[in-house]
């Protein structure tokens, strides 16, 4: 923990009672804290059924046999772990300080929610350097995860996020969080989003947007440099130019929304000007993402 926490004080305590809400039935094989649809070995009684040859004799309820002279098997509800994967966009477009901070805060918060419930968390981000992906289960690893994310390098990935996302997604996860800024061409997004549903039934796309992007307050002659492509663009900012920019931008995100709807992906737009607690306690709860 080389850096001080990027989150507010007592953050983990505040979010301790929250958990990820999902309708996804896909669960991990390991025992967890979430009730499974399957019968399992938890302490909660479910029902009895007649013994058929081949059943585990250990599950025969001998008390019932003593009273009825019939073999019944006592079944309990199963408790299973949830597998949550967080995919963080670390292309250069995320280099914006506030955006990157918010993205990391979100990652940590969501990760802590998962870990705090003894669920399995995996985290991946497309980077050029080889880095061991975080894959842990249990509240024990909450701090470790927080420091792992806090110490993430500045995003420097050169290739586009959309092309890298499928490689860094984990299979069969209950919930897949994708934290990105969505600033890539819409057709590339389509290609990526089409493949994502096979990784998870519940995919959640968090679009981090800086205030500058939403409402550019530039003026004068500017040479705009694209962080990713390093495109240089001379723009003499005028009201007309800004208006057109806003129209283009709005159109892009509307198309992205439409795409997500088509592939059953939930989206949530967060802005850098908003506080992390506002996002978590208002936006996400309202969207029924966490409960």
């Amino acid at each position: 923990m080389s850096k001080t926490s990027i989150l507010p004080e007592d953050w983990s305590a505040k979010i301790g009672r929250l958990q990820i809400a999902t309708k996804s039935k896909l669960r991990g094989h390991h025992k967890g804290s979430h009730r499974s649809m399957r019968f399992g070995s938890s302490l909660d009684f479910s029902d009895f059924r007649e013994y058929h040859p081949g059943d585990d004799v250990r599950q025969i309820d001998w008390n019932v046999f003593a009273r009825t002279d019939k073999y019944f098997i006592k079944r309990f509800l199963d408790e299973q772990e949830m597998r949550v994967h967080i995919l963080l966009d670390s292309t250069k477009s995320m280099q914006d300080e506030k955006k990157w901070l918010l993205a990391k805060q979100l990652t940590i918060s969501l990760g802590q929610l998962v870990l705090g419930r003894d669920d399995r968390l995996s985290f991946a981000t497309p980077t050029d350097e080889k880095r061991i992906p975080f894959r842990r289960k249990g509240a024990l690893y909450r701090k470790a995860f927080a420091s792992y994310i806090t110490n993430l390098n500045e995003p420097t990935s050169k290739s586009s996020f959309t092309s890298q996302a499928p490689q860094h997604s984990a299979k069969d996860c209950t919930v897949l969080f994708i934290i990105t800024d969505g600033l890539e061409p819409i057709d590339e997004w389509e290609r990526t989003l089409r493949t994502l549903p096979r990784f998870s039934q519940d995919i959640r796309l968090i679009l981090v947007q800086s205030s500058d992007e939403i409402e550019p307050l530039y003026s004068g002659d500017l040479q705009l440099i694209d962080l990713e492509t390093e495109n240089r663009l001379n723009v003499s900012v005028s009201q007309r130019v800004v208006k057109e920019y806003e129209q283009k931008r709005q159109k892009h995100f509307m198309e992205l929304d439409a795409l997500c709807r088509r592939y059953g992906i939930h989206t949530l737009k967060v802005e850098t000007k908003d506080d992390i607690s506002h996002i978590l306690f208002h936006q996400m709860i309202r969207a029924n993402w966490i409960s």
Partner: peptide
């Protein structure tokens, strides 16, 4: 200084503005 340099996340939307 002809143009103040300004790095932004993406020039996607600006680009199309300038094209016209």
């Amino acid at each position: 200084k002809k143009y103040k340099e300004k790095t932004i996340s993406s020039t996607m939307f600006w680009e199309t503005v300038m094209k016209e």
